[in-house]
Design a protein around this nucleic acid. Structure first.
Length: 417
RNA sequence: GGGGGAAUGUCCCGAGCGGCAAAGGGGGCGGACUGUAAAUCCGCUGCGUAAGCUUCGCAGGUUCGAGUCCUGCUUCCCCCA
């Protein structure tokens, strides 16, 4: 592994963030000379970012930690077009209202990772709608269209893939890469931003921005991408029982978030600690070397550190404590996910299958029944194989709740009200 | 403009002589084994307590019966112009 002069690239490099870089040497020289400004763009396609975005967020985190200025670019404008990169089909267009509300949801998570403000290395957040929407069509074409050739655009993998699979790509989507390039140029003009980062799938888009900036602004500009992340067994990252691993607490509770990291495969522990925590490298090297049962300790530390970054120290501690009680001591903690059910319903007796569906453990009664048959449902730690069995107030435990579990890891406390 | 093909189980791929709730994968979930891991093995994977109900691009039609045949429409692909 090459050694760099700048802290920034050294950290990224030893932690495994770097996949490709347009000119690592020149970027290193620049970064070692003084603070640089870099940005990453996020399109507002959902109301929360998820674990898949985390690598990129960590890039901004380290950028700031090593004395540089991060810009968070909200894709208010680009989301209106929709990024076609490596997608098979066009996604439905979002309305302005949806985009706005998604952006509001996404913004909050950055506060946990970055310090925003007016200082030299304080992070700022900008919205590309501010400049993109202002362009007239002809003006846009004349200003930027002349710098892109169709010949070149068609050679990008992101476009080629779609064409080779004989899937249509609309002209609208085809314009996305221009808009992203314009973003970089705009940020370079306004904030002297010299670096765009992103996932490896963004390489083509980033390179376009780098070239456009160099050409129009006659300034140095760099691009850097992170490797595509999969777990050691090849699965895509960021999925869990309930769906994506969201970063917003209202989309995924800190407890579930903690659980996600706790369940990391052995082989991924070191990699994840490098990428998703700020633990010192010495400690990571020590922890990832643990073997067998001992590596579970490392996983807890990983979960703690990762949760702390997103949800804060207190939430991480609570999550760990809750998990420890539930899994290691077999004790219930009041902090487990709790759902309130009308007392009257329990009094009358509610079918187990209906109950699990009601509290979100299953999607339909039929699914619940099948699950039960396979031994996947338990009430107060007793497996119930008949989904039609009634759950009543008699099932309340000493704490006045009913513990319903789907499998071994998904536990919900039912509380009568 | 002409000719030929394709759309299947609300995750993906993909079989399907007129009797099909629809083969097989992948993925996901559950169980066993373990260490809240991986690998492996087993089970489940449309809705309904049930009778039953609703699915194969959309709308009609033929038939006792249609994913399967006919007509029209939509979308996509290929070839010719």
């Amino acid at each position: 592994m090459t050694s760099f002069k700048s802290d920034f690239l050294n950290v990224l490099s030893e932690r495994g963030f770097i996949h490709q870089c347009t000119d690592a040497e020149a970027l290193d020289t620049l970064a070692s000379a003084g603070p640089i400004t870099g940005y990453i763009g996020y399109d507002a396609t959902a109301s929360s970012l998820h674990a898949g975005h985390l690598v990129q967020i960590m890039l901004l985190y380290w950028l700031q930690k090593t004395g540089n200025k991060p810009i968070v670019l909200m894709g208010g404008g680009t989301t209106k077009v929709g990024d076609p990169t490596f997608k098979d089909t066009q996604r439905p267009l979002l309305t302005d209202e949806q985009i706005q509300s998604n952006m509001n949801g996404i913004k909050s998570v950055f506060n946990s990772f970055l310090n925003f403000g007016d200082g030299a290395t304080d992070a700022i957040m900008v919205n590309n709608d501010d400049w993109l929407s202002g362009f007239g069509y002809i003006e846009f074409l004349r200003t930027f269209g002349t710098h892109f050739t169709i010949n070149r655009m068609l050679t990008f993998d992101s476009v080629k893939l779609r064409l080779e699979r004989e899937q249509p790509m609309t002209f609208l989507e085809f314009n996305y890469m221009l808009m992203q390039a314009v973003d970089f140029r705009e940020l370079n003009s306004t904030y002297n931003c010299v670096l765009q980062m992103g996932g490896s799938d963004q390489w083509g888009n980033i390179v376009n921005g780098v070239e456009l900036t160099r050409r129009l602004n006659q300034k140095a500009a760099f691009g850097l991408t992170t490797p595509l992340l999969t777990t050691a067994s090849g699965a895509k990252m960021g999925k869990t029982v309930g769906g994506a691993v969201w970063l917003n607490a209202d989309a995924l509770s800190p407890y579930d978030y903690w659980q996600y990291w706790r369940n990391t495969e052995d082989a991924d522990v070191g990699k994840f600690m490098r990428l998703f925590t700020d633990l010192p490298m010495d400690e990571i090297r020590r922890l990832e070397a643990l073997q067998g049962v001992e590596i579970n300790e490392a996983k807890k530390i990983l979960a703690d550190a990762a949760t702390r970054l997103v949800h804060g120290e207190a939430a991480a501690a609570t999550a760990r404590d809750t998990a420890q009680k539930a899994f290691e001591q077999g004790v219930l903690s009041a902090d487990l996910p709790t759902v309130e059910v009308a007392r009257a319903e329990l009094e009358a007796g509610i079918m187990l299958a209906a109950l699990t569906t009601k509290i979100g453990l299953t999607q339909s009664n039929g699914e619940a029944r099948r699950l039960a048959q396979g031994g996947g449902l338990r009430v107060n730690d007793t497996a119930i194989t008949d989904g039609n069995q009634a759950v009543t107030l008699a099932d309340l435990n000493a704490d006045g709740v009913i513990k319903v579990a789907q499998g071994k890891k998904k536990i919900v406390l039912v509380k009568p009200v």
